[in-house]
């Protein structure tokens, strides 16, 4: 039993860090093609080894430290950023339960019955890393950037919590695994009945992960790069890795679980599921999950590389006076349709 858990932990850690590094290449190629240029082409076939080269370069760089900063907190901020972001993956179900020989394995690390609450608790813990990174650097750009980002995270954490309330009511549980199970049983992806919540969730996801149009904490033109400005080498590299890749992946996975039916194939509301990938047999669930996850990730990239950014006051204004009322309206609508779906 412990062996199974250890294997799961290893897979998740390897996936989070390895995939995160590889996604930098995906992003650079994607950005390149959006802007009609080829992107990295030199290192390896079509730049396939670029993440390795980047990593080597970042690791071998000189470790600079601002002279009046606080060294303990400066380093602690990196750990505080990485650990909660990686912990979110503990409650993400990657596929249906399967069995090897006599052992049945759920592809989720811990199926706690408050999984979603944990996701948002860990998600908001990113605030500490950001606030400390900005404060310990002893630089005004870093401090302004971290205050902006912390304000955004707090506003959108409220919004995102209200947005996921709809799917929770429809599923009647907080466990991520059972939310997917209930969608399969009710033969309904919740996106069909919760479109408002889904759109609000996407906005909040972009804001929490510091993606355009909400990347005001970086705002290269005014703040250099915001709260990471005093970090160098791999210490700098870890912040975008966590924010732009690990957090986007985890929040997209939660969106897939909540709105797109997790590992279930294409859904026709109330009638059933159509599986064009039936020939994959037991692997089809995992492939569907990965496909949906990649679709959401690419959507994020698409938005990132095509839109300009909002001003800070516009961002908080949107959160409190557009998004929050929308989620409340959605909550009322959910209360009306919920009995129809529970049946």
């Amino acid at each position: 039993m412990i062996a199974v858990i250890l294997i799961k932990v290893l897979i998740i850690v390897a996936l989070v860090l390895g995939l995160g590094a590889f996604l930098t290449l995906v992003e650079r190629k994607f950005a390149g093609h959006v802007q009609r240029r080829p992107g990295p082409m030199v290192v390896g076939w079509h730049g396939l080894l670029q993440p390795l080269a980047d990593g080597l370069k970042l690791i071998t760089k000189e470790d600079l430290f601002p002279s009046m900063g606080n060294r303990i907190l400066y380093n602690l901020a990196i750990i505080l950023a990485l650990v909660p972001a990686a912990l979110v993956f503990a409650v993400i179900p990657f596929g249906p339960e399967f069995s090897i020989g006599s052992i049945s394995v759920k592809p989720i690390l811990t199926d706690v019955n408050v999984g979603l609450l944990l996701v948002f608790a860990f998600g908001s813990m990113a605030v500490f890393a950001i606030a400390l990174a900005g404060w310990a650097s002893n630089s005004k750009y870093a401090l302004i950037g971290s205050m902006r980002k912390a304000g955004i995270v707090i506003s959108y954490e409220v919004v995102i919590t209200f947005a996921v309330m709809g799917p929770i009511i429809l599923a009647g549980t907080l466990s991520t695994y059972e939310i997917v199970q209930n969608q399969i049983q009710q033969k309904l992806w919740y996106i069909w009945v919760q479109p408002i919540a889904f759109i609000v969730y996407l906005f909040a996801m972009l804001a929490e992960t510091g993606r355009v149009p909400f990347d005001i904490q970086e705002a290269e033109a005014e703040l250099v790069t915001g709260f990471t400005v005093e970090y160098g080498g791999m210490k700098f590299g870890l912040f975008p890795l966590v924010e732009w890749y690990v957090e986007v992946l985890s929040l997209s996975a939660i969106a897939v679980v909540l709105f797109l039916g997790g590992w279930s194939p294409i859904n026709i509301p109330f009638i059933g599921f159509v599986d064009p990938l039936f020939f994959l047999g037991p692997f089809s669930g995992f492939v569907w999950f990965i496909l949906k996850l990649s679709a959401l990730f690419l959507l994020t990239l698409w938005i990132h590389w095509t839109l300009p950014r909002y001003r800070i006051d516009q961002i908080t204004q949107i959160a409190w006076s557009v998004m929050l009322p929308l989620t409340l309206v959605n909550l009322v609508l959910t209360a009306i349709i919920a009995p129809l779906i529970w049946r």
Binding site: V112, S124, G134, L143, M147
Partner: peptide
């Protein structure tokens, strides 16, 4: 589990964040 999750969400995040804010 529910008490633990709420402890994390409310005390460890919502309350402590404001201390950090004030201090910075």
């Amino acid at each position: 589990e529910i008490v633990g999750a709420i402890q994390l969400l409310i005390y460890a995040v919502a309350v402590t964040v404001f201390y950090v804010f004030v201090l910075t």
